[in-house]
């Protein structure tokens, strides 16, 4: 299957004990694509995301990233994660480090840059997410939106070829969501390849190349946003979108 598909997820299944959380999930992305995974909570979106950088282990199927099999036991997991950035719902900033320290840790300890180089790279990434004035602040001194932007800068500092976003705005107060989405939009414009789990439908509609609707661990429907949002083929998709819309 040598092709130029950048990320191919093929029939991935996963169980926690007896409970199946992913059931033959398949989709693919090209370079610079933005794919958004949507679905009710517990539908397996986050688990699917985590299988891509192997924070969760899929038991069946295959995931190829840039021509390499991710799920192979020979895969160097640390190298994989170096190349795939991740942004968490709960930010997970290193609580003992300043914004700068958070972003510089990876370049310094994983990529082996000198302290000065790592600092420089971290500074420029924090500038990129609009936090040039908060370099020395600790996570507890930042607002949720600022913390999440540090989280994005931390992932970007590793110069990843794919970025995973796991509900990046779900833990934020409504008035802080905008600043994070703005940063993400800027990344889309720069051509970053992004796989995003989110409930922000307007964001998905605006930037996604493809939207994948998951329910009960299965892909119910996938397609370009205009099609999926305007003319869903499956009844379940429509019901889900209606429910989400009524909450907005």
């Amino acid at each position: 299957m040598s092709d130029d598909v950048f990320l191919r997820v093929n029939d991935v299944s996963k169980w926690y004990g007896d409970e199946q959380v992913l059931d033959e999930v398949s989709f693919e992305m090209d370079r610079s694509d933005v794919t958004v995974l949507i679905g009710p909570s517990g539908s397996g979106k986050s688990t699917m995301l985590r299988c891509v950088n192997r924070l969760a282990e899929a038991q069946e199927g295959s995931i190829t990233l840039d021509g390499e099999e991710v799920l192979s036991p020979d895969t160097d997991v640390d190298r994989l994660r170096r190349e795939v950035g991740m942004v968490f719902q709960s930010f997970n900033l290193f609580a003992h480090l300043s914004a700068l320290g958070n972003v510089a840790l990876g370049p310094r300890r994983v990529l082996g840059l000198s302290a000065a180089e790592a600092r420089e790279r971290a500074t420029s990434q924090l500038e990129r997410v609009g936090l040039a004035d908060q370099l020395e602040s600790y996570p507890a001194e930042l607002s949720g939106g600022q913390q999440q932007r540090v989280g994005i800068a931390r992932a970007l500092a590793m110069e990843p070829k794919l970025m995973l976003f796991d509900e990046p705005t779900s833990a934020l107060d409504p008035e802080l969501i905008g600043e994070v989405l703005e940063v993400m939009r800027a990344l889309v414009d720069e051509g970053m390849t992004m796989l995003v789990v989110t409930h922000e439908m307007s964001f998905a509609r605006a930037v996604a190349d493809e939207v994948v609707f998951l329910d009960d661990g299965r892909v119910v429907e996938r397609g370009p946003p205009e099609q999926l949002f305007e003319r869903p083929e499956k009844e379940r998709t429509g019901r889900f979108l209606e429910r989400i819309a009524s909450h907005d």
């Binding site: 950088n53 190298r79 994989l80 994660r81 968490f88 900033l93 990876g106 992932a155």
Partner: peptide, 8 residues
């Protein structure tokens, strides 16, 4: 988890 995600 965050540490592992950046490749540590």
């Amino acid at each position: 988890t965050a540490g592992r995600a950046i490749g540590l």
